[in-house]
Amino acid sequence: MSRKPRVAVVFGGRSSEHAISCVTAGSVLQAIDREQYDVVPVGIARDGRWVLESGDPERLRIRAGSGADRLPSVDGGRASVALAPDATSAELVVTEPAAPPRALGEVDVVFPLLHGPWGEDGTIQGQLEMAGVRYVGAGVLASAVAMDKAYMKVVLAAAGLPVMPSVTVTAREWSADAAACRERAASLGYPLFVKPARGGSSIGISKVHDASGLDKAVEDALVHDPKVLVEVCATGAREIECGVLQALDGSTETSVPAEIRITGDHEFYDFDAKYLPEEATELDVPAVLPDDVERQLRELSARAFEAVGCEGLARVDFFVLPDGSVVVNELNTMPGFTPLSMFPRMWAASGLDYPALVDRLLRLALARGTGLR
């Protein structure tokens, strides 16, 4: 190229993980080398409007205080921005009141830092494929499969990977015959976890100790997703994560695993424990594991990555059960990049620091075309 590659960092979105996407974007915007890349911050407001954001990392941090005001969000009142509907020229077009549309320039690669539905689930990936724009991360199918935890389990199990037993409950089934849904859930045995099937950041998740708590847990999850996953609780398990990165030749590399240990009043790794600094969460990076267990975790991470058809990056989450067996919990195609996020921490412990990680992902995306591959 005769100029620096232009990167559109896209964040926010319509999902319940809007704020966490903004926090992730703040970290990435701060880390991108402006000597190597021309950066355009693009925010997606909660109503779905695309705007030209300020890109100020400080504005995208979790602030001190309490309540929703401490969480960042995209300013939907800014100038609108859109990709020109022309697959031969990926230009960003800006429109403002009382002014003619203006071209902002051609985009070479998009870094979609969107978590949850309408972003991490294959929707924006499909839009970018249609526009002929390169982007960081998994394609349409892998993004959709990994976003839907129920289908992800089907794919992983078909590839011979161990998963926790579960059942799904849809809003239609719950409305038509809640008793049958309760019976299917009870067949798994308590305690159970109830979660939105296509959610993240532990939003809408409940731990249910007995039948008396099931109805409220299902209804809480249905607020976020009309499809709910009811899953066996991995009692006494260690929560271990492992990062996966793709190389330019298509091969995969795995990071050292890390362990999350929850202390204090948290029963599980909920939203506050994940993202609020004052919460009592202990992270071991790398995790203290027997050599054979670490080898197994890294091997299963690469196998899960390949089974789902991921590209670029993924974080694979595991349970190491008290008997020493390993179970895949889930796979995230766009793991968090906040200062507290495990994915960059694991790669830093593996010898790849945060700016180098961001640069590698951008170079991978620039080297990969769109369309069938």
Results as ranks from 00 to 15, higher is better:
residue 266 H to E: 10
residue 257 P to V: 07
residue 247 A to E: 05
residue 275 Y to H: 12
residue 268 F to K: 08
residue 300 L to V: 09
residue 256 V to R: 03
residue 276 L to A: 12
residue 237 A to D: 13
residue 281 T to W: 10
residue 248 L to N: 00
residue 243 G to Q: 05
residue 274 K to A: 09
residue 286 P to S: 11
residue 295 R to K: 08
residue 262 I to Q: 01
residue 292 D to C: 01
residue 251 S to V: 00
residue 245 L to M: 08
residue 300 L to D: 05
residue 273 A to Y: 01
residue 268 F to A: 10
residue 252 T to W: 04
residue 268 F to V: 09
residue 256 V to Q: 02
residue 284 D to C: 13
residue 266 H to Y: 15
residue 278 E to F: 09
residue 249 D to C: 00
residue 283 L to Y: 14
residue 282 E to I: 14
residue 242 C to H: 13
residue 288 V to N: 11
residue 246 Q to M: 08
residue 242 C to D: 06
residue 290 P to H: 09
residue 271 F to E: 04
residue 274 K to V: 13
residue 249 D to M: 01
residue 264 G to I: 11
residue 296 Q to T: 11
residue 255 S to D: 04
residue 246 Q to K: 05
residue 285 V to F: 12
residue 253 E to N: 00
residue 241 E to P: 02
residue 298 R to V: 08
residue 268 F to S: 06
residue 294 E to F: 01
residue 257 P to A: 10
residue 269 Y to E: 07
residue 237 A to M: 15
residue 244 V to N: 02
residue 285 V to K: 12
residue 235 T to Q: 15
residue 235 T to L: 15
residue 290 P to T: 07
residue 259 E to Q: 15
residue 270 D to Y: 12
residue 265 D to I: 05
residue 286 P to N: 13
residue 269 Y to I: 10
residue 251 S to Q: 00
residue 242 C to G: 12
residue 282 E to P: 07
residue 277 P to A: 15
residue 250 G to A: 00
residue 296 Q to M: 12
residue 240 I to Q: 11
residue 299 E to G: 08
residue 290 P to D: 12
residue 269 Y to Q: 11
residue 238 R to P: 05
residue 270 D to F: 14
residue 272 D to I: 12
residue 289 L to H: 10
residue 290 P to I: 05
residue 272 D to R: 15
residue 270 D to K: 14
residue 258 A to Y: 01
residue 248 L to S: 00
residue 255 S to R: 07
residue 299 E to H: 09
residue 258 A to F: 04
residue 257 P to N: 07
residue 255 S to L: 07
residue 273 A to R: 05
residue 289 L to D: 09
residue 291 D to N: 04
residue 249 D to T: 03
residue 270 D to A: 13
residue 265 D to T: 07
residue 244 V to A: 08
residue 240 I to A: 05
residue 236 G to C: 13
residue 246 Q to A: 10
residue 273 A to K: 08
residue 282 E to F: 13
residue 264 G to S: 07
residue 240 I to D: 01
residue 293 V to A: 04
residue 240 I to L: 14
residue 275 Y to P: 02
residue 291 D to W: 04
residue 238 R to E: 02
residue 248 L to V: 01
residue 289 L to T: 06
residue 279 E to Y: 06
residue 282 E to N: 09
residue 236 G to H: 13
residue 260 I to E: 01
residue 236 G to T: 10
residue 285 V to A: 14
residue 298 R to G: 04
residue 243 G to F: 05
residue 241 E to T: 04
residue 279 E to M: 09
residue 284 D to N: 15
residue 290 P to L: 04
residue 268 F to C: 10
residue 260 I to V: 14
residue 292 D to W: 01
residue 296 Q to E: 15
residue 253 E to A: 03
residue 242 C to T: 15
residue 246 Q to D: 04
residue 283 L to G: 09
residue 276 L to P: 05
residue 242 C to N: 14
residue 287 A to L: 09
residue 300 L to T: 09
residue 272 D to P: 02
residue 279 E to W: 02
residue 279 E to A: 14
residue 282 E to D: 11
residue 285 V to N: 11
residue 288 V to S: 12
residue 241 E to F: 02
residue 261 R to S: 10
